[in-house]
């Protein structure tokens, strides 16, 4: 391998790092703030209507950020409080597939069109998949 090739690859990489690093730090700063929110207190906002609760659960999960384990624990707590499994599944799915907090960073690095389409599609799929999962579970049990 030529030294020139390595230097060229290194230059391209450093240029990419210089472009992406400020956006990544910005995303981390925003997530730091979102982690201060107490999502455990939101169970009172669920209405009991399965469709509305599922959309609400997916919306809540989209705003939330952090380790997926937290979403499992919160999901377990929500189930204990009588929230439907469809809404809880939508909440956990949106938590890991939609990123409103990361969206500005995703827009800057991946492009506006891509980020908006991908997150909107993931949001809708979180709702559809939640209903499909619970329907399948009912059919299997």
């Amino acid at each position: 391998m030529e030294k020139k090739q390595v230097i060229s690859a290194l230059k391209k990489t450093v240029s990419g790092i210089k472009k992406a690093l400020p956006d990544l730090v910005g995303v981390l700063l925003l997530i730091g703030l979102v982690l201060q929110l107490d999502f455990g207190k939101v169970s009172g906002y669920f209405s009991g209507n399965q469709v509305i609760d599922t959309i609400f659960g997916a919306s809540l999960g989209s705003i939330a950020a952090g380790n997926p384990i937290t979403s499992y624990i919160l999901g377990g707590e929500l189930l204990d409080k009588g929230i439907s499994l469809v809404a809880v599944t939508a909440f956990m799915l949106a938590w890991v597939t939609v990123g409103i907090v990361q969206l500005p960073g995703e827009i800057l690095i991946m492009g506006r069109k891509f980020a908006i389409i991908r997150n909107s599609s993931s949001f809708l799929l979180a709702i559809v998949v939640s209903f499909a999962v619970v329907a399948t579970l009912r059919a299997l049990q």
């Binding site: 992406a20 995703e106 991946m110």
Partner: peptide, 8 residues
């Protein structure tokens, strides 16, 4: 989000 730069 750490994978965005590589994917881009």
């Amino acid at each position: 989000y750490v994978w965005y730069p590589l994917l881009a």
